[in-house]
Design a protein around this nucleic acid. Sequence first.
DNA 1: CTGTTAGCGCATTCAG
DNA 2: CTGAATGCGCTAACAG
Lengths: 351, 351
Amino acid sequence: MKTKNTNTNRPATLTDVARLAGVVPMTASRAINDSGYVSSEVRKRVSEAVKKLHYRPNMLARQLKSSRLNAIGILLPDIANPFSTELVNGVRQVFDEAGYTCFIATTSGKLEHEKASLQAFADHRVDGLIVATRGTKLGDEVLRDISRRGIPFATIGRPIKLRGVDCVTANHWQGAFDAVSHLIEIGHREIGFIGISPEDRLSLRRYLGYAAALEQAGLEVRPEHTVGPREAPAFATQEDGFAGMTALAQLRRRPTAVFARNDFTAIGAMRAAHMLGMRVPEDMAIAGFDNIPLAAFTTPPLTTVEQPITAQGAIAARMLLDRMTAEKPGAAKSISMECKLIVRGSTLIGG
Amino acid sequence: MKTKNTNTNRPATLTDVARLAGVVPMTASRAINDSGYVSSEVRKRVSEAVKKLHYRPNMLARQLKSSRLNAIGILLPDIANPFSTELVNGVRQVFDEAGYTCFIATTSGKLEHEKASLQAFADHRVDGLIVATRGTKLGDEVLRDISRRGIPFATIGRPIKLRGVDCVTANHWQGAFDAVSHLIEIGHREIGFIGISPEDRLSLRRYLGYAAALEQAGLEVRPEHTVGPREAPAFATQEDGFAGMTALAQLRRRPTAVFARNDFTAIGAMRAAHMLGMRVPEDMAIAGFDNIPLAAFTTPPLTTVEQPITAQGAIAARMLLDRMTAEKPGAAKSISMECKLIVRGSTLIGG
DNA sequence: CTGTTAGCGCATTCAG
DNA sequence: CTGAATGCGCTAACAG
């Protein structure tokens, strides 16, 4: 039996609009999407009907026909990080203009979340994906799956070897190298690294840059000078920084400077240094990574490494868009961007 | 290397699965969704076919039938504040369990973005919406539109009077009142407020709590003691805090304590105080709001007000879910949650 | 310029 | 227990 459409809650459909405008649905569709020829007379009637009924196209039905959702997904580790916001801005610069919506999902650092979110995006048939979580074995597997499903994606900060997948990343190695070289230049000979466990250290580009800088200066890389969380190598927080500095301070051969894996870790380390009665930078120089907005406002302000985040987002977006619209697959591109050392008072007296 | 390029293949459909399993699509659907009776024999064949073809249901087609996307949208302001993550965690606690996916969009503080994101969610027919942006006139209008479209939603931290819309918020007024009362208790008589322009102050609950605490103690609320950004009353950053403290320091009648609108602002103010040669808390006590993770790691650690963020997210989610599944509309609920003062070294010597 | 036809992938409804 | 028909809302691809 015919259900009465008296339910005001039911959104208006194209058919409703067409009926009110006295045309057939297809014509209304053409008028609304500016495709094909429609008389200005009809166009006007349709647009009036649209307004009157508060009509909005059902993107899902549209996608079902065209297999284009006009939306992409962005997978982030979390959104607390200033990093994430800037990244999204960069991505949106490109996709807003191209008429795509950007949906975001976060993993909260949980691998199951990463898998679930990626699946959800794929199940909802997004047209493309930007992945900015940290590389893990399980994560890579899921991405391989996604790739098999034919969904184009690009990664940021997590290089992955997969056919037809573009990657953009900052040169974390170089950034770390520069920061540690700076510490060496101003006279430090014993420099610690805070933010990762000795076991996991080799998987971290920031660590490798640190080690390389020491070696190039002819300094020894001491295992006991590397401290950090073992449970969750994907992150390092202010708490880890605090614990790390506390541990380093107990060493017989205590470093005079530390390079922290990121600014949060550096700030935690700085707090510990203060509590242990060390002066920063006189007794302990500290450098971080990322240049979060608060880095310039700590006491003393934090020396750190800045990476071009918005640019990375924009470039990844552009590559993804190209791949989404391209006819031919094209070779995978991999782009690396320079980081910039920013020297402040946490390493330089009077800085 | 078995590099079979399945990329050109379109994703498997239910029909593909059914064909491989030797049944009709409907039967496969029943087997996959555990609905209706299916012989274990068929069930097994189907599940094998699913695995073999990497089949995943097309949520869009499913929704087209059922009018349920099984997903909700979360709209966040884009300021890189740590509570975004916690909020999302709270919301997900509820919706993950209920089998919904959570998609996030951010506004970048731009009102057009807010409108566009809300429209995008609605156009993609999400089943519900959590809105956590700051209240604005235009934003309210868009929300009224969304509400008319029949999409249930709940707001966090932005009360709105709309039929059938639930709101949850922290009691910012009380939090501010408690923080300022604490400053008064430890002896301060001249207390500034940093974070909003005098023109906009009355729209900010945190300001009103500040003023109320002063009045209750019989202290005068001096207009010149309120400083903050005028251009963008929706936000206040570390830069605003720095500028605000600098301005207050030049007053003839300089405050001995300040209450900052949020922790970022407080940290900026603290930096300015240090640079101006004031000791914190001896010469200048500083309190913030939000208890961001870094607040415990500043020098000195920051006295601040903590709001139950995860809980707010979970409660809003629960109310939304109830509304989404309820038969009858039900009256709109409005919930307010207490905030907790956390006293640290930025107000208490030796704290 | 406009109408007709046909399906996108899935699940509800009714027959076997 | 399984199959067949039907339509969700929309739009290519053809007719007029």
